[in-house]
Amino acid sequence: MKKKTATQNYIKKLPDIQRRAAEKLLAEAKPFKPVPSVLKQWLIWLGLAVLVAGLSLWIIKPQDDILQKLLQLPSGSFMLLLFVGSALAAWNGIASSMPGEEPGPAAKSWMIGILVALIAIPLFFFTSDNLAGVLEHNAESGWFCFRTVVLVAIPSWVMLAWMVSRNASFHPGWTGAWLGISAFLLGTGTIQTHCTHWETTHILVNHLLPMGLFIVIPIWIGSHWLARWKK
């Protein structure tokens, strides 16, 4: 009772419009749990990403000479950029849903740079193959890669989006896009660890195209799901 009087005393000096609005909020206020910081959420994502990618690789097995590939400059940097890109996009996605922490132009430029490099490296450094050949062998192994990228991306996007849906994104479409890029790059990184085809067209079509084709889905879902906190 005493506390109630104290709260009313604070706001009674406000002009009518402001007092009414403040009274309404105070009446509606319920206990709540603050969300963890961007870093903590990102570390949770990291744990989940390791789990999803690790489980997938446990099922599909990494290629035999993966260590050798990691030590070669083009393939090693390609793999590194996939996982770093996924981690950076996850960070940007989480940050974009926390007011005052939104990624700035530098973070966006880095992400664009990584995506450009991920297309440029296979184009300039990997063995060239032709589209007809890729589509021909797709029936055997290509669609497996394509499918795996999507199958790894889905749980990792859902888990990340579920975590981020507790935050307060003012640009939910963008947040959905960041999370989508992170999930698809994780999927591509996972399949790249398994797949022995290091040819340009195979990688562009079967490892990277899923992101280009389906990125609109996380944007669309994100713009609805991640905007629910406003309602």
Partner: peptide, 28 residues
């Protein structure tokens, strides 16, 4: 004004107490 205050109310769980208040408030 009422919409803005309501948004502040709904987003208050995202404020990190170890961070400055003004960028958070003005973004919201």
């Amino acid at each position: 004004y009422q919409d803005v205050l309501l948004t502040f109310h709904k987003a208050r769980h995202t404020y990190q107490t170890d961070r400055p208040f003004s960028p958070w408030l003005f973004t919201v």
